[in-house]
Amino acid sequence: MATINSSNQKNAIYYFVTRGNIVFEDASVVTKGLLVEYNSILNLVRSIDISKNNFSGEIPMQLTNLEGLQTLNLSHNFFVGKIPEKIGNMRSIESLDFSTNRLFGRIPQSMSSLSFLNHLNLSENDLSGQIPSSTQLQSFGASCFSGNDLCGAPLPDCTEKNTFAPEVPNGNGNEDEDADEVDWLLYASMTLGFVVGLWCFIGPLLVNRRWRYKYGYFLDGFVDRFCYFVRKCY
């Protein structure tokens, strides 16, 4: 699997079924989303399928050294971390299934160089960012990338989702900041107005005795008139 065009039968893995006196090479392999039965050319098949297990941890970087691997299926496990950046080194890969795991981060740009890739499933992960631009990746349907936070063809454009806008506070954050600033200015102006207004009224009374007397007479007269009016009404 680490060498392209390696058909050395000494390194091949065989599955044998006995039928009378004849031994046949025979195995069923899931590839490209289909169950395919191989017999005469099984020794040419390069496939790893460990799907629907309980494997966890990150995908080993050494896996990208398998330049002769044709099918890789790691779906329905608990793999975490990012897709290996050097996945583009797997030049012979035709079918790649990482669906239903816990992978996160961006899709490596090197994946766009997998020219033989004709089956891809990255759905149901936590991948994010823009799908790398290439004729190869854009040829797959949106369902191959569903269940992630991805954008770009074949999914909606990134500008529509605002996925790659500069990292600035969102609209709600700006509104909250503006509201906080308005509240602070309001309270400051109210306090200042109260202090200024109070001293504009109290200050002259403290300085000028004549004004204090006149203000006292005014209050006495006002209280008398108010009491007279209340008694008259009742």
Rank of each mutant, 00 (worst) to 15 (best):
Y215N: 07
P166F: 01
G81E: 01
P166T: 00
E124N: 08
V80G: 00
S6H: 03
S40M: 08
N43Y: 14
L206I: 15
K86E: 15
K82G: 05
T64V: 10
R106E: 13
N8P: 00
N148K: 02
I83V: 12
V196T: 14
R106A: 07
L96F: 09
E67C: 08
R212P: 10
G173M: 05
L35W: 12
G105T: 00
Q136T: 15
S47A: 12
P60R: 09
M1L: 13
L127Q: 09
E160F: 10
F98W: 11
I131F: 07
Y187W: 12
I87V: 09
F98A: 11
S146F: 02
F104T: 00
L122D: 05
N172P: 06
C227Y: 12
N21L: 01
Y15R: 13
S51I: 06
T159Q: 09
F222M: 08
L35A: 09
F229I: 07
Y38N: 03
S6L: 04
R19C: 13
R231P: 05
I4N: 06
L114P: 11
K10V: 04
D220I: 15
N39S: 13
N73A: 00
S7I: 13
I50A: 03
L66G: 02
W184P: 00
N54G: 10
E37Y: 06
G141S: 13
C227N: 13
F226G: 08
E177R: 00
Y217P: 04
F164G: 12
L63D: 01
L186D: 14
S7N: 12
E85F: 02
Q70Y: 09
N43C: 15
L198V: 15
T191V: 15
F78M: 11
N5E: 07
N208H: 05
L63T: 09
S123F: 12
G147V: 07
P108G: 00
V30A: 04
T159L: 14
D220T: 09
Y14H: 13
K214V: 15
G216Q: 07
C200S: 14
C200V: 15
G129R: 06
R231V: 15
P132N: 05
V80W: 00
S134Q: 02
S95H: 05
G147Q: 10
S123L: 06
L96V: 03
W211N: 14
P154V: 08
A179D: 06
E124V: 04
S146R: 01
L127D: 03
V223C: 12
I87R: 02
V45I: 06
F222D: 10
S189V: 14
D49W: 01
P108M: 02
Q109E: 15
K52I: 15
F222T: 13
S51P: 11
V30D: 03
V168N: 07
S143P: 01
V195I: 11
N5Y: 05
L66H: 06
S56H: 14
N208A: 05
V17Y: 07
G221Y: 12
